[in-house]
């Protein structure tokens, strides 16, 4: 992949990122935008749920621990909604605690990303995550 094609690898995608830490949220937004995605952001589960209902994003990336409605509760709420149920949700975990990975997958998250997101390896990491979500990886440019 050339540097130019990298910058447009996610063009046309709409991704919703939910995180209560503004800087973390901002970095995720910047990185996704850098690779061409259209990014929506929310600071908690309620906002995220609302944004998802309005914009129907193709992918949701949600932090697990948030004040108010956390990642788990939000996922449960999404699964109650027939329109939103099909949107893949990726968990954003602060650090891999015991069983976190297994629990997230068991709860219905399609994959997970480890925080903090590292700009240098972000693309690689994200592509790995997409391998867990075959219906999205077909949308990738160049496939």
């Amino acid at each position: 992949m050339t540097s130019e094609s990298q910058e447009t690898v996610f063009s046309g995608w709409s991704v919703l990122v939910i995180d209560d830490e503004p800087d973390s949220l901002r970095i995720a937004e910047l990185l996704l935008k850098r690779y061409g995605a259209q990014v929506l952001t929310a600071l908690n589960g309620h906002e995220g749920l609302l944004a998802a209902q309005i914009h129907l994003p193709q992918l949701i990336i949600a932090d697990l621990s948030m004040p108010g409605m956390d990642g788990w509760q939000m996922l449960a709420a999404l699964q109650q909604d027939t329109r939103l149920r099909t949107i893949p949700v990726v968990a954003l975990t602060a650090h891999a605690m015991h069983g976190d990975r297994e629990r997230t997958l068991a709860a219905g998250f399609r994959s997970y990303l480890t925080k903090p997101l590292k700009p240098r390896t972000f693309l690689q990491d994200f592509l790995l995550v997409l391998q867990d979500i075959p219906e999205l990886s077909t949308l990738l440019k160049g496939n």
């Binding site: 830490e21 800087d23 973390s24 970095i27 910047l30 990185l31 850098r34 925080k115 903090p116 997101l117 590292k118 700009p119 240098r120």
Partner: peptide, 9 residues
Amino acid sequence: NAILGYTGI
């Protein structure tokens, strides 16, 4: 992490 994120970008 924020510092490293921004500097990385």
